[in-house]
Design a protein around this nucleic acid. Sequence first.
DNA 1: GATTTAAGAGTACGATCGTTCGTACGTCAA
DNA 2: TTGACGTACGAACGATCGTACTCTTAAATC
Lengths: 203, 203
Amino acid sequence: MTGRASAQAALETRRSVLRAAAELASVEGLDSVTIGRLADRLGMSKAGVIGQFRSKEKLQLETVELVLEDVRARVWKPVCHLDAGLPRLLAVCASWVRYAADPGYSGGCLLTQVTYDYDGRTGAVHDRIAEGRARWREVLRRDIDTAVAAGDLPPGTDAAQVVYGLESLAAGITPARLLHGDDQTEDWALRGMHAILGAPSTG
Amino acid sequence: MTGRASAQAALETRRSVLRAAAELASVEGLDSVTIGRLADRLGMSKAGVIGQFRSKEKLQLETVELVLEDVRARVWKPVCHLDAGLPRLLAVCASWVRYAADPGYSGGCLLTQVTYDYDGRTGAVHDRIAEGRARWREVLRRDIDTAVAAGDLPPGTDAAQVVYGLESLAAGITPARLLHGDDQTEDWALRGMHAILGAPSTG
DNA sequence: GATTTAAGAGTACGATCGTTCGTACGTCAA
DNA sequence: TTGACGTACGAACGATCGTACTCTTAAATC
């Protein structure tokens, strides 16, 4: 059997490695995260870093898993208890843009970064990102359909088009912030989302 | 003096290197473009590849310059002769999304790729991208202001917000296409832009 | 036709990449 | 206390990175 204290210490190590990997990846991209640099940054040996995972790709995948969980916890979880349909959609948009504008990584929202980085590649990371995004789209689409059924959105609304607009506006926050220093990105994105959803934007 | 024929051959080499670099960068990102892989792909030696440029960063910068020129030629140039204001804005949107949906690189629009890749970094590539995007924003903003003055957009229109919406919708095309295989991204983006600009979307 | 010039090949350099090995140390069960 | 187990280390592997050099070769100028 695995010892308890050592297992907990190992878990602690995993988390610190993943946290460092996420921070680094947000700035320079997921494949600029090298074992050696992580080892240096953490004061560990390369073997100690990679030993927790079995390969670099596994480490990358776990990093993706970490950020997906982070988004789920900070964007979806605070609003999932609300009434399905437009109310929850508006709340999702608010927490979404808030997260994107202040994700806790110095290189901006890591999910956006990895999404645009791996969209054109093949492999496990691409597939995982595509799957995660597809699920998120599904969540949004369901609430859009509910809103249409409730009469909160016009009948005949193209849910896919609405989803596209929302995710594009959310993803635009990071480059606007980091390339131009825009500090109103959260407002811009949220107002755009409200326009799409037919909600009045309070000044 | 530089010979004419050899200089032309060298220029040919430059272009083929840059074209290969752009194609590779669109898929795997600008810093996955290594001298060795370019040399292999082009059937050249590493020295022959890098000899045209003085360092890898110079090659990266010239690749960025190439794609900026490409966008200018294929997005802006076809519509720049139109009347300033809303007419030209609508035409820009059309050629913009058309370009983003079919940029000629197998990894999607390279400008979008590099933008989201380097937004959080420091260095010459980041700075050049930021400068290019700032100029593009300026072009858009001017036509928006003209449209407002002409009464084609409501007075009090927030030009920065409109610009943000347009560039976000354009940038959303690539991941939607490549991650989910969406083939209606051009429509989605264009309709979203028309909604922002208050133009009716013809079905 | 001889001289000059530059493009590109070839080779090598030190650094770093991801990965694998043997080993030392600490923790648990027996 | 002993034995088994797992963590993390240090060292080393072959491969590849960007760059710097020499050398060949072909074109341009005289």
